[in-house]
């Protein structure tokens, strides 16, 4: 093929899966614990940060992206990017509406 499509297919060892599994459970416990603390706005920030870390772990290891081609990595990034565009561009309207007219 005209681009390097061939990647040796990596078989991920169960130990890696088990480690990721443990980390995910740990982060779940952590996020529940963090929610019981009084952190103000940072409650949301911490909870979302932990969620992003957990999701990244799942994508990288359970979904094999760490061992995949650049194309797939780029594909995921573009999806996340468009999702952020949808949210931020919509929010530009909602946030700046409060500033009133000129």
């Amino acid at each position: 093929m005209s681009e390097p499509t061939h990647h040796a297919h990596t078989v991920v060892h169960p130990k890696v899966y088990a480690a990721v599994f443990g980390a995910l459970l740990l982060f779940t416990a952590l996020t529940v614990f963090a929610s019981s603390l009084e952190l103000g706005v940072f409650n949301a920030v911490v909870a979302l940060a932990i969620a992003v870390i957990k999701a990244t772990l799942v994508v990288l290891f359970f979904m094999h992206i760490r061992y995949s081609s650049k194309l797939l990595k780029l594909t995921i990034c573009s999806g996340v990017f468009m999702f952020l565009v949808l949210i931020t561009m919509t929010l530009t309207d909602y946030i700046s509406r409060a500033w009133g007219l000129w």
Binding site: T92, D93, I95, S96, R97, A98, W99, L101, W102
Partner: peptide, 9 residues
């Protein structure tokens, strides 16, 4: 009725 600033962008 979207915000003026956003409309500009």
């Amino acid at each position: 009725g979207i915000s003026n600033y956003s409309a500009l962008v």
